[in-house]
Design a protein around this nucleic acid. Structure first.
Lengths: 353, 353
DNA sequence: CCTATATTCGGGTACGTACACGAAAATTTA
DNA sequence: TAAATTTTCGTGTACGTACCCGAATATAGG
């Protein structure tokens, strides 16, 4: 017996019941000064009784103040187009929220160059913002940056990669550990006990390894839990150019027991290219992210699975979290883990990102 | 060299430039009568030049007219909780759009009883609505219903299952054929050439079979394309109670070549229960939808994969399509296929529905 | 050319909230 | 107790658009 049809009441009605003016109700709503304790309590009582919900439409129309959001994420690079997707989500949110008085400014850094991050962060802090969306690629620097924001009381939302210690307002992105765990599970279906698995980390900056290491942990945890006997061979490739990758891979691939290759990030396309050149497309290949290059190899059957975590949605939801917090004054969820999507040759067409 | 910072102009500015009043501009914007051709053209010209975007916030505040949406979908039944999810999405949209003057009324029918659908449809048509969200479970009746709506110029959005001939404004749901195709692909990884596959359709009403048949088509198409030699054994189960299912399944399971069981809808939980009772959990089991019962069997390892297509999002997006069309006057996409999500024991926790 | 009717247009108010400004009441100070 | 302050509160306008009502203008009819 819930009451469904709550009468839509406004400040006017509250004012009438409390025998005060609209302005006084408004003061209580925004708890500004200038209201005696007695009337304040009376009004709050009525607000609660009526279960008053402010009219957001009228509120945004009347409120002329602009909210300024800053976005600090890696620029799209030639090496990987990954950050295009979150950026798209951010732009989408931007145009959706423009009507509500949100202004967005973007600070893009080079994910291979921590100095460029420091620089952009400094630029950002020089201006005034009400909220920040951050992709914390460089752990140390990001923690410092978040500290600065907290001093200024600016809420920070992290996307794509969490920050050890979890400082910000919220994190929106993959559960990295589980991503690795799931990859192992998938592979377990496809390899026999005597076959081994090559785990490949490709990254220039060691700091990104927070990302990769969490995935690797999850990956190993699976085999451990299952008490599987498969050998896991690991290789770190710090030179991200193709010849270097080829050289290092072909060395390992001499080991004929290897049946599957697991690449811990979006560089799987490069590995696919190498495998193709080496005529080893018989191997199972699993990697991350929905990138054009990777999809091409998925189509050809060189890559078998891609694991993807809605990068565009990460961008959109990150912005929405700031909006919900700062405009609607809602409590927002601390961790918003993205679903773990498995992309195959058959379903990639329907993966909207 | 795009211009990014379009000055936010309003009707007032347009009126000033055209040397007319705001009301006249308003008439042109809504192409109401009472404006001479000459001034109308002049105003339209200016509107185009300024790339005027109406302020939705102010518009919804000023416009007192309520839009009425009707929803006609199956009720949640004891047999399957599937429709709870789309309903949740719809309720979510309802509360999100309430502020914008949207009123929703729901008409729930029994998906095992076509008469109840006809009845609810009749009730619906007796009232006045601006838009309809429909789950076309009964093909014939739904086509007729959509025809009635079109006569009344009411846009209809279909969810979860499309209508052959595609009458409505839009379809939001799975690409059924591809879902079947993908299932086949998944299974192909897991069976050897000499092993066969049991395809199980469980449904009381033949009409739902539009749904199931499309999936089956896709499923078969895969094997055909791959020229696989695996035998596919099909069984239709029209009595949906457990004993009946058990009887029919155990008959087939005597065939020892069967390695995998593919259930074409959410009834996979019932099959899982049967397999457990028959102590045949060694078989690979694949089915559809993220339901509590199914998840339990997924956890236990009885079910290996579930294919899921964001039922809650279907409900939400269906409502949003109506909103976009009727409030924002946007063109909306004719087909919005849901991604094909593959749920395993490892990632189900992160599937937010 | 004058009235009658149709056409074209502008003024003004409303939607629900935010906020500036100033008035009234309560309190302190002299 | 009057004046000076502080506290408390109400009036009024604005946000950008929708739409009612009536005024001005154009067209038709005699």
């Amino acid at each position: 017996m819930e009451k469904k049809e709550e009468e839509l009441v406004g400040v006017k009605e509250i004012a009438r019941l409390a025998k005060v003016s609209i302005a006084t109700v408004d003061r209580v709503l925004h708890n500004r000064t200038g209201v005696s304790v007695k009337t304040k309590e009376k009004i709050q009582q009525i607000i609660k009784e009526l279960n008053y919900q402010p009219n957001i439409v009228a509120r945004t129309l009347a409120s002329r103040k602009k909210l300024r959001f800053a976005v600090i994420i890696p620029a799209v690079s030639l090496e990987t187009a990954f950050w295009q997707a979150p950026l798209n989500g951010i732009v989408q949110a931007e145009s959706a929220f423009r009507q509500y008085g949100i202004v967005v400014e973007k600070f893009l850094f080079d994910q291979n160059d921590r100095k460029s991050f420091i620089e952009q962060a400094k630029l950002l802090l020089r201006k005034e913002f009400d909220g920040v969306l951050l992709a914390p690629m460089f752990v140390e620097e990001s923690i410092q940056f978040v500290g600065q924001c907290q001093l200024r009381l600016i809420p920070v939302v992290n996307i794509n990669s969490d920050l050890p210690g979890q400082d910000g307002l919220a994190y929106i992105g993959p559960d990295l550990y589980q991503s690795g765990y799931l990859s192992a599970h998938l592979i377990s279906y496809l390899v026999k006990p005597d076959e081994s698995i090559l785990l490949v980390n490709i990254s220039r900056e060691l700091d990104n390894d927070h990302h990769l290491m969490r995935k690797e942990e999850g990956f190993r945890a699976y085999w451990q839990k299952k008490k599987a006997v498969n050998e896991i061979i690991k290789t770190d490739i710090q030179q991200t150019d193709l010849p270097a990758i080829k050289k290092q891979l072909s060395k390992h691939l001499k080991n004929s027991s290897i049946r599957a290759v697991f690449v811990t990030n979006s560089r799987v396309a490069a590995v696919a290219k190498v495998l193709e050149e080496l005529e080893r497309t018989d191997l199972l290949l699993i990697g991350f992210d929905f990138l054009e290059d990777s999809i091409a190899y998925l189509k050809k059957g060189v890559i078998d699975f891609l694991i993807c975590q809605k990068p565009q949605e990460q961008g959109y939801l990150g912005m929405k979290a700031l909006y919900d917090k700062l405009v609607l004054h809602q409590e927002i969820q601390k961790n918003q883990f993205m679903p773990i999507d498995i992309i195959t040759r058959e379903n990639y067409v329907f993966y909207n990102n």
